[in-house]
Design a protein around this nucleic acid. Structure first.
Length: 628
DNA sequence: GTTAGGG
DNA sequence: CCCTAAC
């Protein structure tokens, strides 16, 4: 076995020039093999390389504790690569200044050209050695320290970049954004939800050239009240600072190892597992290789994963930007329209730059349907569940140009038409579920904007929440109600034994309009399947189940499914079996111990009766077998 | 693919 | 609701 040494470097919390509220942080972990004598050097080079990718114009990375010769070696290498890049680059360097003025003060400096109207400071990225988690990341951010600690969920989702699998030259490097988190716990009522991921880089693979493709950072929860995006087309370099509109703010979620946060955030081992291991869950992002530049040796195979997501969601319907309430169905929708103001040319910017101001993001449509008898708390939990489900797959930003989605990420802004002055009123941004590429039916795709929207519905009877793939059909409360279980005939409370041939119609649960869990992940890319959304059985469903079991008995769950739940796609026969199990348990415990929507005692009595009968039959069978 | 049962 | 042995 080759012993492994893990060198860890990091740089955290440096301020971004131009956008005072933004902060970035990153962690670089460089596992190397001890056998190589050049380990330190290699690790160092990697670090510098990665740091270079983090840097932006006017920023300098001062490496930690490096020896002179290492510095020089690395510096020479960097210089040479930069020269090579310049020479081999065919990326239309109209802005030659950027390269010409590049100096290497300190150690590694990227683009010292100051193209901003006010001179940015030089920011040294300081290394840190103790990588004890995101607390550190969250706290150290210079002037942002105060609001960083405020960020609540932001800390939770704070990203971590690590470099792994380095095996000498030629080995593959990858940066994977992981999510470090404990579990969620609401510190109070959920009025605002915000998320923040760390550096949203689309790295240039292996190149020293910073290719910030996109960069999204949420501002402090209370202070930001607009979304701002400033983008620069910098000969292929593009960076953006986005602050999400703070639709409302009050209490927010925070990280907590303890859990009491309601049904959807129970201390469930699976859930924890998902949250704990970012690599295995939703934080895994697809890699994006956008560098047109030539790269060399081990940098060649660098693969960088990373992206950012951030959004804020307001569950106070009344204050949402666009509110719609359907009185009949108690259905409310949160919708945030997207709009982009006309560009304001940056004073010091060149013609090729475009500055965008995003007033708001369009978020995936959230359709909530809940009975008036439901508690506010359950509504909040449901919304949280829905949001969590969306986030479980991550979000990415969609671009809409004149109502049409811009899908080709490789196009430049000019090619796309974004850079043209005065055309930005038709530019829209939206947050999309990353994996749940759900297409809405025509009827919901108004203005062509919601073509990728996601709607969540709450079962009006159960308050369960679900993600509706719109392929299923146009979903709205009014329509859905037609799918409700037909009212049951009034069966006497007396025990109806399974073999009784009552001529009553069998209630069937129709659920095709109800949700289907978002399992529309990219084929083969999903390492860990999302746990299905919990959907408590409604009384109607319980009734249907009981009646079917009365008819068919236990042990024929497939038939029960076919008989009573054939149209409820989200109820498997295993679900029905499990529900029966819990029903039996529920019927046995005292009403005080029962939770959830109360099941009428009449139904529970029938459950017990059927169960007793079946148990009796089973016992007789056993006796016969053992007796003979 | 179903069933049964533990987690 | 998940997992999986057993069929």
């Amino acid at each position: 076995m080759v012993s492994q040494t893990r060198l860890e470097y990091g740089f955290i919390g440096y301020q971004v020039p131009v956008f005072p509220r933004a902060s970035r942080s990153a962690r670089v972990r460089v596992p190397i093999r001890k056998k190589s004598g050049n380990n330190e050097k290699h690790a160092f080079e990697i670090l510098v390389s990665v740091a270079g990718d983090f840097l932006q114009e006017g920023e300098t990375f001062v490496p930690p504790n490096c020896k002179k010769d290492q510095q020089n070696a690395c510096k020479n290498r960097v210089l040479k690569e930069q020269e090579d890049e310049i020479q081999s680059s065919k990326c239309n360097l109209s802005d030659k200044e950027t390269y010409n003025e590049k100096t290497l003060s300190g150690y590694h400096q990227i683009r010292t050209v100051n193209k901003f109207s006010h001179a940015p400071d030089q920011f040294n990225l300081k290394p840190y050695s103790s990588l004890k988690g995101f607390d550190k990341l969250a706290n150290v951010s210079g002037r942002n320290a105060n609001h960083s600690s405020e960020l609540g969920i932001s800390s939770l989702i704070s990203g971590e970049f690590s470099v792994g699998q380095f095996e000498d030259a030629g080995a593959e490097l990858s940066i994977i954004q992981t999510v470090k988190s404990e579990t969620l716990q609401p510190t109070g009522s959920l009025d605002a939800l915000e998320m923040d991921c760390k550096p949203p880089h689309y790295f240039c693979s292996g190149s020293k050239t910073s290719l910030f493709k996109d960069w999204t950072t949420l501002g402090p929860s209370r202070r930001s009240d607009t979304i701002e995006t400033v983008s620069r087309d910098d000969n292929g370099n593009y960076m953006a600072d986005q602050r999400i509109k703070n639709l409302s703010s009050s209490r927010r979620w925070r990280v907590s190892p303890n859990l009491n946060g309601g049904a959807s955030f129970r201390n469930d081992g699976k859930r924890r597992k998902i949250f704990h291991d970012g690599r295995t869950s939703y934080s895994r992002q697809r890699s994006k290789r956008i560098s047109p530049l030539k790269t060399r040796d081990f940098f060649n195979q660098c693969r960088f994963y990373g992206s950012d997501r951030g959004f804020q969601l307001d569950d106070r319907f009344n204050s949402a930007a666009d509110k719609r309430v359907d009185d009949d169905n108690y259905c409310a929708a949160i919708r945030v329209a997207s709009s982009v103001a006309s560009p304001h040319p940056h004073p010091g910017s060149r013609d090729c730059n475009v500055k965008l101001r995003i007033k708001s993001f369009k978020v995936p449509e959230l359709l909530v349907e809940i009975p008036t008898t439901a508690t506010v708390g359950s509504l909040k939990r449901s919304v949280m569940e829905a949001v969590t489900t969306v986030l479980g797959d991550g979000l990415h930003v969609g671009i809409l140009l004149q109502g049409k989605k811009v899908r080709d990420d490789s196009k430049t802004l000019i090619q796309t038409g974004i850079s043209r002055d005065g055309k930005h009123r038709n530019l829209g941004f939206m947050l999309e579920p990353r994996h749940a590429q759900i297409k809405l039916p025509r009827c919901l795709g108004e203005q062509g904007i919601t073509s990728h929207a996601t709607s969540f519905t709450l079962d009006p009877r159960t308050s369960s929440i679900s993600l509706d793939p719109p392929v299923v059909g146009c979903i709205n409360g009014a329509q859905r109600d037609h799918h409700l279980v037909p009212s049951l005939p009034n069966i006497s409370a007396s025990t109806t034994l399974p073999n009784s041939q009552s001529g009553v119609s069998v209630p069937a649960i129709s659920g095709e309009a109800l949700a289907v869990v978002p399992i529309h992940h990219r084929a083969g890319r999903r390492e860990f399947v999302q746990r299905r959304i919990r959907r408590p059985f409604s009384v109607s469903e319980v009734e249907a189940l009981v009646q079917a079991v009365e008819k068919l008995g236990t042990g024929r769950w497939r038939d029960v499914k076919l008989r009573a739940f054939d149209n409820a796609k989200h109820r498997t026969y295993v679900d029905l079996k499990d529900k029966w199990k819990t029903l039996v348990h529920t019927a046995r415990i005292s009403p005080q111990q029962r939770r959830g929507e109360p099941v009428p005692q009449e139904l529970l009595d029938r459950v017990l009766a059927v169960h007793a009968y079946r148990s009796q039959q089973q016992a007789k069978q056993q006796q016969l077998k053992s007796g003979v």
